[in-house]
Design a protein around this nucleic acid. Structure first.
Lengths: 224, 224, 224, 224
DNA sequence: AATGAATGAGCGTTCATTCAT
DNA sequence: TATGAATGAACGCTCATTCAT
């Protein structure tokens, strides 16, 4: 299965071409992670891949084409790992949930993850393709979460399960900027994983449809 | 209290200068939000503020100077609201916690918040000042959270309280990319606030020092 | 009367700016004439004007803006001369016609005219502005021709006068590529002017509405 | 008779090669006509001919080689038609002259002619080959004109005949930019052909050697 | 006869910055 | 305070050309 989907027909056909394609994508990803999207330029990618700008543009006629392929390529790596985790799950939904949480939170400490995802989120606010990609990734991440939640709390209908899964997933993503690689609380990443595990399990087991539905007006009344 | 801290001595002193300064900062913020940091340029800021590039550079000799002031200015607005919330709190720690959670989560639906913060997080990975600023903001946001947690769960020592507060705060930030303005799950923002409230309250009340300390090795044993 | 109409507001305001503007337009025109439109680049114009590319783009944000102004500027020079000729005309329509013909045909020998106009014609086939400009120039050139023709041949209605003027004008333009500067027949330019004068005078005096209206079918009949 | 004269020895020898050669030349001509010489590039020609750039360069090692062959090829088509006209002429010189004029003027309405020739004239000012080619074409076009003029006006010596033929030929070319396809006066093309026919016949019949020889000094005297 | 891969120069354009006025 | 003028570097991109296969 060839995951690179470079745009221009007829590029990356030969062995040499495929090697160059990989050099390009790695270079682009490295620059995105080390310097951020605002510093990502075709020139820098070319230098990083040790090819000429002209040749880079032979593979990717426009910067946007490169961006797309680079995002695909970067995400595929994460997804591959995640897929392995999913397949290795046993039948115990609680155990499965725990292992997913632990995997995702600890993965935030990976330097690549720490810097790549915030770039993607920022990009998604201004770039349609990045936005679409984000939707796809996180939908796939939520699938095993939803599966476990459904089995651990049969009172919830599917929409409610989806929202709980979304809460758990986004909750973990939010830690990136605080416990990720190089961040102030990076040393506490395992403690954060523990809190997350404890918190999410309790949530999943105890939450009722009413907890979710309760509207802000009632909340206001409670307050008063 | 003048919150703008523009670098060049003696600028923004006259009435007209102050007005121009505000026009500049608003223009910069608008561009950051609408087009992202990679598209933010001195030229565009000058056009947006309806002044010449030369004059812009009179106020901010370098782009970085502008960036700093713009971040300060943008965050001040959020902090002002947050401060009002803090001061308006009554003595009930649970009620206070609930109102903070509700305020923060619902604020994510604000278009400015939705796009501004991801830009800041991405920036913080490559810009020292943005990084420092983030630390300051979120430390201040956590203070009232820590206060409530401490009172609701006296078993936890301060370090543990800090970590629970960090978990809750980052958890909410993570929703930005999913329930923010224009995002797929924006319609569910109130439901997400409900889940968050329920989940965090349970967490704060029930968590023990052991839950936090438990290490991954034990987890591994549990798994096996 | 300032004939330069550079696009960007606020450029060319100071004395120095106006000088630079002239250097730019002269440089552009020289390159167009010496190397042709396909070789006209912002870089070459900047070098010719002895300024930086950045400064050139300060005056003309886009190449098209420069092209427009350069065309305007180049044509103004021709029009100024032509206007002087028109104003210096006495009341004798035949004499006036002769002097216009002589002026235009001999002007074709001017190196600038020889190369500039074919570039303009080619450009007009692909560039809307050049096309519009051509219409304007030649309409103005035809005015004094129409005036003379009308007086020399009262049998023609205005539409017919226009067509005869168009024939005469375009006929002269066609000589550019043959008797212009550096062309094979350049030595015969005065003889060509003589033939043109004799031919056009005869035409104007003798042509009837029927000559113009006669359709190709009748022509075929005449032929048979 | 193979009219294509591509440079590289041994190309276009096989049947398939000849087909590709035609695709290339057609593609080049189409681009020249639709976009102008400044937009004519090897890449675009290759795309238009549906071959790779590498293969295009197998046929034409340099862009200039392609340009030459393309000009030859384009002109051959016009010359073929013109040759047919010449051969179909009967013995009446006036009739022959009329049919040539009608053919040439009406041909200006052909979209290809309208745009191709101005490009050629512009090119001829900067490209030696295009210049040489122009000389050849128009010399051939003038031959039948000279033949008719000579027979219709025996007073003229050959040099004078040549100049009258040149005047008539260039006069017609000049109409291209005004009555050609898509031009403002295109609807009047038949009327222009009529005026041309009438004017040129009168010229040819009545012109004297003195009319041609008369110098500008005498003209100047007339004016004064 | 044809493709894919690569180069290096040049293109129009945007940029942060400097400086005279 | 404010503008207009200027620079030099970098940007994304197109180009003619070369070469291995």
């Amino acid at each position: 299965m060839n995951k690179m989907r470079n745009i221009r027909k007829g590029t990356g056909e030969s062995r040499r071409g495929k090697e160059t394609l990989l050099l390009i994508l790695d270079s682009a990803k490295t620059i995105l992670i080390e310097q951020g999207y605002s510093k990502l330029s075709m020139r820098k990618v070319a230098v990083g891949a040790q090819i000429s700008v002209g040749n880079l543009q032979y593979y990717y006629p426009s910067k946007n084409d490169l961006l797309k392929d680079m995002l695909d390529h970067s995400i595929d790596e994460f997804m591959d790992e995640f897929e392995r985790l999913r397949l290795g799950a046993n039948n115990d939904p609680e155990l499965h949930l725990k292992s997913i949480i632990n995997f995702i939170v600890l993965d935030l400490g990976n330097p690549t993850t720490t810097t790549f995802y915030p770039e993607l989120w920022a990009l998604a606010n201004h770039d349609e393709y990045a936005d679409k990609l984000m939707d796809e990734i996180y939908a796939r991440v939520r699938v095993p979460l939803e599966d476990s939640i459904m089995r651990l709390n049969p009172r919830l209908d599917f929409e409610q399960v989806q929202k709980v899964a979304l809460f758990i997933s986004s909750s973990m993503e939010g830690m990136t900027m605080f416990v990720g690689h190089g961040k102030v609380w990076n040393d506490s990443i395992q403690h954060m994983a523990n809190i997350a595990t404890m918190s999410f399990l309790q949530l999943v087991k105890n939450i009722t449809p009413e907890d979710i539905q309760e509207n802000s007006f009632e909340l206001a009344n409670h307050n008063g």
